[in-house]
Simulated scan of single mutants.
Amino acid sequence: MDSPSLDIEHALQVARAQVRRLVTEYPLQFPTYTQHGKWHFEDDPWAPVWTSGFLTGQLWIFAELTGERFWHDQAERYSLALESRKTDSSTHDIGFLFDPSWGRWHDLEPSARTADVLVRAGRTMAARFNPRGRYLRTWVDAGSTFIDVMMNVGVIFRAARLSGDPALQRVAVEHALTSRRFLVRGDATTVHEGWFDPDSGQYLRAATHQGFRSDSCWSRGLAWALYGFGTTHLGTEDTRFLRTAQDLADTYILRTGDAYVPPNDWDDPHPALPYESSAAAVAASGLLQLAELSGAAGERYARYAAGILSTLSGDAFLADPDRRWEGILRHATYHHGNGLGVDESVMWGDYYFTEALWRLASSPRLRALASVAPAHPERTSE
């Protein structure tokens, strides 16, 4: 399968222009999705606010790639605005809040302070662990876990490394094993939500909030899992998790094919919309991570990820900074059933699109695997 051409720097320029406008016109605001192309700033009507780390993560990416003081100062400012949530017990999305923000800050400029924030955030996430069912519970119910939670184990692995606490490592591994057993089906599709008896730990049933039905495969859920099991392999070097990530990647590629961008749920016979671009953005970054972990097999994943990014960088999906659309990627959906952010931009779609471009811009090996030309980030003001 040939990858379309990809202009990394053009896509990054568009992303920087849109984010610069966001932080200039709406300082210290953390939107989740757009309405008619305009960022929506009211509280999330469905879940505890969980997307603030994504805008902050984009700021750190631009600071790293450009070296501009503007991006660095904004990234610090937005990270500090998130710090108090390191002890927020109302959400299972602590990893989404802190890995892109304080995690990237620590990776660029490690310090005792950034380490302390990340350890405390990881302990907050780990406190959601049910030892009887061996899963991390969601905000929905003590008996609920989501496939999305696989994207939040990374902050626990990070806290375990920084603190040297093996109990944290065990929590992350146990949750990943439980998700692998109950939320990944034998055909390498994924369950959105698993329900357990919180007292006995017995698995009860599958469910979904955002997919077509409980036995279908919500595409963004599979993308979360693909990425999350790759992260778990990074945290453990356990080949079981690598094989699971590869199986899920193969499912994404098989089911999406030359379209590169899936619908909201592959099993919906009559999808209302043909595309869910945030699922593709998450998959692209997860596939590039997986390409680095997969040796010779990594070329296939890198080339397909480049195909996704080339498609998302085309006129059909990438916003035009000269027009009124405020997000980066169009044709994403937050919650179809609840009518939230449908065929709009969503903050995680924008972040993982930017992160995937960063992976290619930062890695000559990945660019070679993907057969794309290098980017040349500007180091002057735009």
Rank of each mutant, 00 (worst) to 15 (best):
S84T: 13
R365L: 14
E76I: 14
F182M: 09
A15I: 01
L6M: 01
R240K: 12
V342G: 10
G257R: 00
Q289L: 13
E344F: 03
M151Q: 10
G341Q: 10
P271H: 02
A373V: 08
R104L: 15
I61D: 12
R181Q: 04
A17L: 14
R181A: 07
E68Y: 02
V261K: 04
A370H: 10
E382T: 07
L242R: 00
Q29C: 08
E109D: 13
D199F: 12
T251F: 13
T178N: 08
M151P: 03
L97H: 01
T311H: 02
G257P: 00
P131M: 15
T24C: 08
L290N: 05
P45K: 05
H270L: 12
F182P: 05
E9S: 11
W224D: 03
L248F: 09
L162V: 12
R128M: 09
L287Y: 00
A272I: 13
A160V: 05
D343Q: 13
D258Q: 12
F70M: 14
A368F: 02
L273G: 00
A296M: 09
R132L: 13
A370D: 11
G314C: 00
P364G: 03
W71R: 10
T145C: 08
T32R: 13
V23S: 01
L254M: 14
R123K: 07
R20I: 04
W224M: 05
Q246H: 09
R180L: 14
G298S: 03
L6W: 02
H192C: 03
L118I: 06
R21C: 10
H175A: 09
R134E: 10
P110F: 03
L6F: 00
D116V: 08
F241G: 01
R161H: 11
T66P: 06
A279F: 12
T380Q: 04
R330D: 01
L369N: 07
G235Y: 00
L55F: 05
L290P: 03
G37W: 02
L204A: 09
C217Y: 04
A370N: 07
G339H: 11
W218F: 12
A47Y: 14
A206G: 09
G53F: 06
S362W: 12
R161T: 11
Q29P: 02
F30I: 11
E174D: 11
R220F: 10
A319Q: 03
A75H: 15
N152P: 04
Y26E: 13
S310H: 05
D141S: 11
F62R: 02
V155M: 06
V171A: 04
V49T: 09
R16C: 11
N130T: 01
R213G: 13
V342N: 07
R243W: 15
E299D: 15
A127Q: 09
A115H: 12
F182Q: 14
L204W: 10
R180V: 03
P263W: 00
G143P: 05
L273W: 08
E237C: 14
G194C: 01
R180A: 15
S79Q: 09
Q210V: 02
M150D: 13
F353S: 09
P321C: 01
S84Y: 06
A245E: 00
A11Q: 02
E174N: 14
F62C: 07
Y78N: 05
P271Q: 11
H336P: 11
D258Y: 08
T34W: 14
Q18F: 05
A279C: 15
D238M: 08
P198A: 10
D238C: 11
E64A: 03
H40N: 11
T189R: 01
L290V: 05
G286S: 11
